[in-house]
Amino acid sequence: MTKKVSSLLLLMFFTTVALAQPKNPKFKVIAFYTGKSDLAHISFVNEANKWFTEVAEKNSFSYDSTSNWENLNSEFLSKYQVVLFLDTRPEKPEQREAFQKYMENGGAWMGFHFSAFALEKSAYDMNWNWYHNTFLGSGSYSSNTWRPTSAILKVESKSHPVVKNLPKTFKAQPNEWYRWQNDLKKNPDIKILLAIDSTSFPLGTGPKANETWHSGYYPVVWTNKNYKMVYFNMGHNDMDYEHKFDDTNKTLSFTFDNEIQNKMILNSLIWLGTGKKVK
Rank of each mutant, 00 (worst) to 15 (best):
T2D: 14
T2G: 15
K3Y: 14
K4D: 15
L9Q: 14
L9F: 15
F13G: 12
P22A: 05
F32S: 06
T34Q: 12
S37Q: 11
D38W: 06
H41K: 12
H41G: 10
A48N: 00
K50R: 10
A56I: 03
E57M: 10
F61R: 07
D64Y: 06
E70T: 09
F76I: 06
Q81T: 03
T88Y: 07
E91D: 15
P93D: 02
E97P: 09
A98R: 04
A108E: 05
M110N: 04
H113T: 07
F114K: 13
S115D: 01
S122W: 08
Y124F: 14
Y124Q: 14
N129D: 15
N129C: 12
H132S: 14
F135H: 02
F135M: 10
L136C: 03
L136W: 01
G137D: 04
S140I: 01
N144S: 12
T149E: 10
S150R: 11
S150P: 09
S159Y: 08
P161N: 01
Q173F: 10
Q173I: 13
E176F: 00
K186C: 03
I190V: 06
I192L: 04
L193C: 09
P202N: 00
G204P: 00
T205M: 09
A209R: 12
V221G: 04
K225A: 09
K228R: 11
M229E: 03
G235T: 07
N237A: 10
M239P: 03
Y241H: 11
K244R: 14
D246K: 11
F254V: 07
F254L: 10
T255N: 11
L266K: 11
V278H: 04
V278T: 06
